[in-house]
C-alpha cells in the first residue's frame, strides 16, 4: 500500500469520527440548555472547548451564544473541526484513496457528504436541529456500517481503525478535561441537582448514559464516571478501550508486514498502562494532570504511526 494511501485512510476515518463527535457535542449542549432553568449560555462555552477550536471561535465572535455556537460547530468553514469541514475532509480523503475502498463504502461516504452538505447549506434553526443531527448520525453510521460490512480485514482496514480510535480517545479525553473540576471528589460532597446535570452532561457528550446506567445503575457519581470513561474495557469510547484497539490494529500491521515498529511498541506501553490503572490512583495523581499526560502520549503514537508507515516521506 502507498504511504499516501495509509495517510488518506487514517484521516478519512479520523475526520469521520470527528464529525460524529462534534455533532454529538452539539446535541449534548442543546439538551443541557433545554433542561436547565437558568437561561445562561455558559454551558456552550465548555461544549465549545471540548469540541476544540475555542480560540478560533472567540476570535470571530467575542461572546458565546447558542446560535453562534451551534453554527460554529456544525457549519463554519473557519472551524476545521466543524461537522461540515470534517465531512468534507473525510470525503476528500476518500476520493484520494478511492481505489482502496469498496464501492459500497465509497458510495456511503459520498452519499453522506452530499446529504450533510445539503442539510448544512443554510443556518440550522432551533426547530430543525434535532432532525439535522439525526441525519448526521445516521449518515455517518451508514459509512461505518458499510466499512464493517464490506471491507477486507487487511492493512487498509487497520489504518481506518487506527484513525478512528486515535480520534475517539483524543475526544473522550478532551471532554473529560473540560469538566475535570466537577468530577473531583470534593465536588461529590456538594451533590446538588445542578451538579447532577453537569455530570450527566459528560455522559451525554459521549453517548454513554445508557451504558453507564447498565453498568452502574441510575446514580451518577464522579468516581464512577471516571471509571467508566477512562478505565472500562467494554465501553467503546473509553480511553482503555480505544488504546487497546489502537494497539491491536498496530499489532496486526506488524504481523502482516513482518516489521516491528516503534508505534506498535508505544501503543502497547500506553494500552497496558491504562489497563493497569486504578481510579483512585488517577485522582491521587490529579485528574487534569493524568488527562494532559494521556493526550500527550496519544498524540505521540499518532505522530509515530505517520513516520513508521511513511505517510509523508
Amino acid at each position: 500500500m502507498l504511504g499516501k494511501t495509509a495517510n488518506g485512510l487514517y484521516w478519512l476515518s479520523r475526520s469521520l469520527e470527528r464529525a460524529e463527535n462534534t455533532a454529538r457535542l452539539a446535541d449534548a449542549g442543546q439538551r443541557i440548555a433545554l433542561t436547565r432553568l437558568s437561561g445562561a449560555d455558559d454551558e456552550w462555552g465548555s461544549i465549545l472547548q471540548a469540541a476544540g477550536g475555542w480560540d478560533g471561535y472567540m476570535a470571530g465572535h467575542g461572546e458565546v451564544t447558542r446560535d453562534d455556537a451551534i453554527d460554529w460547530m456544525l457549519r463554519s468553514p473557519d472551524n476545521p473541526s466543524s461537522v461540515l469541514s470534517s465531512i468534507k475532509s473525510a470525503r476528500q480523503n476518500a476520493r484520494m484513496v478511492r481505489t482502496a475502498l469498496t464501492e459500497e463504502m465509497w458510495e456511503a461516504m459520498n452519499g453522506c457528504y452530499m446529504a450533510v452538505r445539503d442539510a448544512l447549506a443554510r443556518k440550522v434553526g432551533e426547530r430543525d436541529l434535532p432532525e439535522c443531527l439525526q441525519l448526521i448520525r445516521s449518515r455517518t453510521a451508514l459509512v461505518r456500517g458499510a466499512t464493517h460490512g464490506t471491507m477486507l480485514r487487511n492493512d487498509i482496514y487497520d489504518f481506518l481503525r487506527i484513525g478512528t480510535f486515535l480520534e475517539r480517545a483524543d475526544s473522550t479525553a478532551r471532554i473529560l478535561d473540560v469538566k475535570y473540576y466537577i468530577l473531583l471528589p470534593a465536588a461529590a460532597a456538594v451533590g446538588s441537582d445542578l451538579d447532577n446535570v453537569q455530570w450527566e452532561s459528560i455522559l451525554e457528550s459521549v453517548s454513554a448514559r445508557g451504558g453507564y446506567r447498565m453498568v452502574h445503575g441510575s446514580r451518577v457519581r464522579p468516581q464512577e464516571i471516571v471509571q467508566f470513561l477512562i478505565l472500562d474495557k467494554r465501553m467503546p469510547r473509553s480511553l482503555n478501550f480505544c488504546c487497546s484497539k489502537i494497539h491491536e490494529n498496530l499489532r496486526y500491521l506488524v504481523n502482516d508486514y513482518g516489521q516491528q515498529t516503534e508505534s506498535a511498541d508505544m501503543a502497547e506501553r500506553l494500552a497496558s498502562s491504562v489497563r493497569a490503572q486504578e481510579v483512585d490512583d488517577i485522582f491521587d495523581y490529579g485528574l487534569h494532570e493524568y488527562i494532559q499526560s494521556f493526550l500527550g502520549s496519544i498524540a505521540d503514537v499518532g505522530r509515530q504511526v505517520e513516520v513508521d508507515y511513511r505517510f509523508y516521506e
Binding site: 500500500m1 511513511r310 516521506e313
Partner: peptide, 17 residues
C-alpha cells in the same frame, strides 16, 4: 510525490518501503 528514483528504478513509497 509518491514516486522517487531509487537505485536506478522509479519506485513508489509504500507503507513497507
Amino acid at each position: 510525490h509518491d514516486l522517487q528514483v531509487v537505485d536506478g528504478r522509479v519506485a513508489m513509497r509504500t507503507t513497507q518501503g
